[in-house]
């Protein structure tokens, strides 16, 4: 693990800790039903203020159960994660391709200097200096 990867792992660890600590420390224990939404207090706040409010429009579609709802939420997260992974994957692949092309050229000597530019442009936007870091680009 190089320094870059370590920092990235540390960032993830802190985020995970921020999510787990409230659970581990039992910060929801004072509630009847902990970790629902911020609704415990918000509910009292709103019903105190306006107990008779009636929603005047209901959702066109409502997930029939909590399970379906969580499935749709996972779908949302999965879609997002898929696109993100595609993005970083394609860029990593490009850089590796560039690197390989450059290595081949180095091996072949400087007989065909114009292929360098061709390989570089085929590799997309990567510049020579970030090719050296390609192994650090873990998603």
């Amino acid at each position: 693990m190089n320094r870059n990867t370590k920092i990235n792992a540390l960032l993830l660890l802190v985020v995970a800790a921020l999510a787990v600590l409230p659970l581990a420390l039992g910060l929801g224990d004072h509630k009847e039903e902990p970790f629902t939404g911020a609704d415990g207090e918000a509910e009292t706040a709103i019903t105190e203020i306006e107990p008779d409010y009636k929603p005047w429009f209901s959702p066109l579609y409502e997930p029939p159960s909590g399970e379906i709802e969580s499935a749709l939420f996972s779908l949302q997260a999965a879609l997002g994660a898929g696109v993100l992974a595609y993005y970083f994957g394609i860029h990593r692949g490009r850089r590796q391709g560039e690197e390989r092309a450059r290595a081949q050229l180095d091996a072949a000597g400087k007989t065909a200097p114009d292929t360098v530019t061709r390989a570089a442009s085929a590799g997309g936007e990567g510049s020579p200096e970030d090719a050296g870091q390609s192994t650090t680009g873990r998603v």
């Binding site: 999510a19 910060l27 004072h30 509630k31 970790f35 911020a38 609704d39 207090e41 949302q76 997002g80």
Partner: peptide, 11 residues
Amino acid sequence: ALKLPSVTGSC
């Protein structure tokens, strides 16, 4: 889509 627990004991 990430509902996370928070210090107030809610999400």
